[in-house]
Design a protein around this nucleic acid. Structure first.
Length: 673
DNA sequence: CAGAAGTTGCG
DNA sequence: GCAACTTCT
């Protein structure tokens, strides 16, 4: 035992600086650094081409850094991370495993399982917070409940009684564990057809932790001070460009936070108001990233279900033609189209333009937001499940503090707001390049002679708008009243205990996902909660139906107002304790119970069995010994909601929308429908 | 000119 | 949904 080495399991923490798992491994002695590539585990969220390209570069970078410290990065190809970990344990004689927390649903399930299985094998497992300023379970309102709006959440984060932990320095030297019997697999991240497109990416981006560090320094010493002034320009290089680095954990968000804070103090002392505002705005975007993990942890389905239940009844337009026009940048709205072409060409989009194209998708085209989210997932360099889910839910009006659902932003006006001189449109839509600025964002109004002079033939080399804004507004109003009717009918049926007839509503409800729709991918249903998607690479732009049709969809939607009672992460030590209580049990010393298959369908934060000795911890900042885990939904998943009628505190949302107060009983619906 | 009506930003 | 702001009448 004493001779045993430690495995440091790298995932989305591809850095050596401020990496608590790595630091713990180094402290414990010899280290085997491992990365396991098991993309099939991600199901529908198999990483897209550009995201895989980034990962490949980032791993190479990490490997060379680790080598210079004394040990290589062992890479393994796998379809089951946990069994691969076990193999690595056996071939290296490791006695400890260290890793950093992730908060997406799949990782929570997998990491929980890893911890159970490895612990059962006598391996000491410890996990750490490396991705967040504060762990999700440490940020609560005065009643100890999780927040449901961002502003309150972030305000609390910024005024926590203790600062986020200071960043750790990188190790000076790593003693390598014995990997002579643990050879690396060659990992393939791109196929032949992808190489050409990928070659272009290297011109614009430099993955890897030390490049991330440079990007951070450059931003903080440069564009940060003008961030508030410049952030609206679609075309300018005034954002931090940190998001892909942050996604892969190449730079620690705590380091970002600390460095930005230093500037904040400096500028505050100088009375630099613009600088201060810039810092606050930039930190807010860091906060949104935090919040995305927070929401994912508290609402494990937020990447596939609207958080506000009534949106379940919105009659989405299921139109592949619209979807295709959007993807190809042929909607007839120049700003939208320019954005979509940029996204396809570069894997990147300014935050404002993400809002423009996604809100056009949801409000004008009224396509189901999850399709758009899936497309973003496939194409964005910084594709991030939690952040993207939060973004799309925000746009779709399915958050208590989301955008008003019934408002349509006019891309023409937004064009002049974000791209006043039309430069952005001209860059990405060369066919419109010769159109004067006056008409660049609404070519359909331009005089025919002008169009001719500019070489534009609307409907031919550039499309007319595929949907008029006025028509979209009318259709949106109709859709919304239909939604409320369906919702009311549904609630009435629930109250009467007569769900008959609701089969209809469930059918037309967009969320009973379009079974009738023939998408282009082979699909098979989820089995054992580990969906296998057969991907067709000819057109990764079409989302798979499997990404939409999940058995769980027949079940419940977690209404956000049920937060405290639903699938929220808890810190249970006994299986059946009251959840509120159990969340506090965290601070009262750990029981090592990991309730594996107990049918508790919610997240749970389980005390780390490898860390029992730390369990005297009295402050929640000691939650380093805690792993967030999540038990997969079982057949009993919706049972929890069926009887869940106890009073839930009023959120601001509830006060505004008493009509969606009722908890929906999706299970009964699906059984009868 | 006051007040209504519409717009915009909000995370 | 609301506050702040602009435009209309």
């Amino acid at each position: 035992m004493s001779g045993g080495c430690s495995i440091v399991w790298f995932r989305r923490d591809l850095r050596i600086e401020d990496n608590p798992a790595l630091a713990a491994g180094v402290r414990a002695g010899a280290v085997v650094a491992v990365f396991i590539w098991a993309p099939e585990e991600e199901g529908h969220y198999y990483p897209g081409r550009v995201s895989r390209w980034w990962l490949k570069q980032s791993l190479a970078h990490l490997d060379s850094s680790l080598r210079s410290l004394g040990t290589p990065l062992v890479t393994k190809r796998s379809t089951d991370s946990v069994s691969t970990l076990l193999e690595v344990v056996k071939s290296t004689g490791a006695t400890h495993i260290f890793f950093n927390h992730l908060y997406d649903p799949l990782s929570l399930v997998r990491d929980h399982r890893a911890k159970e299985i490895l612990t059962a094998q006598g391996i000491a497992v410890r996990s750490f917070n490396a991705d967040l300023l504060y762990e999700p379970w440490d940020v609560n309102d005065a009643q100890g409940r999780p927040f449901t709006t961002f502003a309150a959440f972030w305000e609390t984060c910024l005024s926590m009684p203790y600062d986020p932990e200071a960043p750790l320095l990188p190790p000076k030297r790593i003693i390598s564990g014995d990997i002579s019997r643990c050879p690396s697999d060659l990992l393939i991240f791109e196929d032949e057809s992808e190489k050409g497109s990928n070659a272009l990416l290297a011109r614009a981006w430099s993955p890897g932790w030390s490049n991330a560090d440079k990007a951070l320094t450059t931003f903080i010493n440069g564009p940060l001070i003008e961030y508030s002034k410049n952030r609206r320009k679609a075309d300018s290089a005034t954002t931090s460009f940190l998001s892909p680095h942050l996604h892969f954990g190449e730079v620690s968000v705590r380091k970002v936070f600390h460095l930005v804070r230093i500037k904040q103090v400096l500028w505050a002392n100088e009375g630099n108001k613009a600088g201060e505002e810039s810092v606050n705005l930039f930190l807010k975007s860091i906060g949104l990233r935090e919040y995305s993990r927070y929401m994912s942890f508290n609402h494990p389905y937020s990447h596939e279900r609207p958080l506000l239940g009534h949106l379940k009844f919105f009659p989405w337009v299921v139109d592949e033609g619209y979807f295709k026009a959007w993807r190809q940048g042929r909607t007839g709205y120049p700003l939208v189209d320019a954005g979509m072409r940029e996204l396809w060409a570069t894997g990147w989009l300014h935050d404002r333009i993400r809002v423009v194209v996604s809100s056009f998708f949801v409000k004008v085209l009224q396509l189901p937001w999850r399709w758009g989210m899936k497309y973003f997932w496939d194409t964005l360099l910084d594709a991030d499940l939690e952040s993207d889910a939060l973004g799309w839910q925000y746009i779709s009006g399915t958050l208590p503090d989301g955008r008003a659902f019934d408002r349509i932003d006019n891309p023409q006006f937004e064009g002049y707001k974000f791209d006043p001189h039309g430069e952005y449109v001209r860059r990405w839509l060369p066919e419109l390049a010769r159109l004067p600025t006056e008409w660049i964002h609404h070519p359909w109004n331009a005089p025919e002679s002008l169009l001719q002079a500019a070489g534009i033939e609307l409907g031919s080399n550039y499309p007319l708008p595929i949907v008029g804004i006025d028509a979209a507004k009318v259709r949106l109003q109709e859709a919304l009243s239909e939604m409320w009717q369906q919702e009311a009918a549904f609630r009435a049926a629930i109250e009467n205990g007569t769900e008959e007839g609701l089969g209809d509503s469930s059918e037309s409800a967009p969320f009973a996902f379009p079974q009738d729709m023939q998408m282009e991918e082979t699909h098979e249903l989820v089995r054992n909660n580990l969906p296998t998607t057969i991907r067709r690479y000819e057109d990764q732009m079409v989302p798979s139906i499997t990404s939409l049709l999940r058995v769980e969809d027949q079940e419940t939607s977690s209404d956000i107002q049920n937060v405290a009672e639903d699938s929220r992460g808890v810190v249970p030590r006994n299986v059946n304790v009251n959840q509120e209580q159990s969340r506090y049990a965290l601070n009262q010393g750990a029981a090592q119970t990991i309730h594996g298959n107990n049918n508790l369908p919610h997240f749970s934060v389980v005390s780390d069995p490898g860390n029992v000795e730390d369990s005297t911890a009295e402050s929640s900042s000691s939650s380093r010994g805690i792993v967030p885990v999540w038990s997969p939904p079982t057949a009993s998943y919706s049972d929890q909601f069926a009887g869940d009628e106890n009073g839930i505190g009023t959120s601001s949302y509830l006060q505004r929308h008493p009509q969606s107060h009722q908890i929906m009983n999706w299970r009964r619906l699906s059984q009868n429908g």
